[in-house]
Amino acid sequence: MNYKNITIAGSGVLGYQIAFQTAFHGFNVTVYDINDTVLEKAKSKFKSMCEAFKKDLNATEQELDKTFENLRYTSDLADAVKDADLLIEAVPENPKIKIDFYNKLAKVASEKTVFVTNSSTLLPSQFADATGRPSKFLALHFANTIWIHNTAEIMGHATTDPKVFKDVVAFAKAIGMLALPLNKEQPGYILNSLLVPLLSAATNLLISEVATPEIIDKTWMKATGAPLGPFAILDVVGITTVYNINKTAAENTKDELKIKTVKYLKENFIDKNKLGVSTGEGFYKYPNPTYKNSDFLK
């Protein structure tokens, strides 16, 4: 693995974390997004990442200064990938948006550039043809708060080059991840194959008016010893991602409960910009959500 120049496409919930983590570990990182306004937001989020890295990783000022030196920003896709050895796609979890992105990317990227998707639920085979380089395309999926929950699931598709797969595994290790290679394609990988049914069951209970988010979270936390309940997790993941996943499922299955969930999330969260931790409010208010109160489970 001789990757040096890494491009992160998308600076949202996971994109900016991947960019900072990669730059922290000494790679040259280009952050790409659709316009300069969005990129300015990413820059402000990097400042909060500094505090997290100091607190959780004991990062020094010197290490963080070097991290910022390793970061550059652009809203020009051709410029973003002109020297890229690896491009990590972290655009919204919507098949149409991803295919459109890959169609544009394939026209401007160097032949050497390996593409990986950070999709949390979609399969690389869905986009392989759109990339124009199926053998150099696979999935590299990160969990949220990647500097702490440092998992990296690596999943190829039928025609992924085995050497490219090994190189991406090595890259994941090089940026401080626990590399978790999968032997075959699996919707939801490992993490979300376990997590999504939990979150889906929780939203079903809410939409069916069985219990409130707080009561559902209390039940899960107290009964299992988990540090977070499903609705706290949804706030961390980001409600936009959850909305997009449910919207795709509703369109594909016409399931009545999924349709109700999409409507509920749109009216109560998306339209009100209550998108979770990133906007200061979702199912809970931040920075001091009630589930962190010492008496929440009493």
Rank of each mutant, 00 (worst) to 15 (best):
V91L: 04
T30G: 05
A152R: 05
A232Y: 01
G229N: 13
N192I: 12
K247W: 01
F20L: 04
F283L: 04
A179V: 08
K82C: 02
L87S: 14
F27Q: 10
T151D: 04
T37W: 03
F137V: 00
P187K: 10
A106F: 00
T113Y: 07
K247D: 02
E214C: 05
D65F: 02
L180Q: 15
T212G: 06
H157D: 06
F165T: 08
S11G: 10
I8P: 00
I97R: 03
Y291L: 05
T37R: 09
E69M: 07
N246S: 12
L234K: 15
N103F: 10
V262T: 11
F101Q: 02
L123A: 02
V277E: 05
D85S: 05
K184H: 14
L14K: 00
D235E: 07
A172K: 00
T253V: 14
D271H: 03
H25M: 14
T131E: 01
I216K: 01
M49Q: 12
N94Y: 09
L195I: 03
T113E: 10
G282S: 05
V114R: 00
V116N: 03
T131K: 00
N94E: 14
Q21M: 15
I146S: 14
S44C: 12
N5Y: 02
D271A: 11
I270Y: 03
A9K: 06
A211S: 15
K47E: 15
K285P: 08
P162G: 01
G15R: 10
K184L: 10
E256P: 13
G238E: 07
N204K: 12
V210Q: 07
N70H: 12
K104R: 11
I239L: 15
K184G: 04
H25I: 13
E93F: 01
A9V: 05
A170P: 03
T159C: 07
K285G: 10
L199C: 13
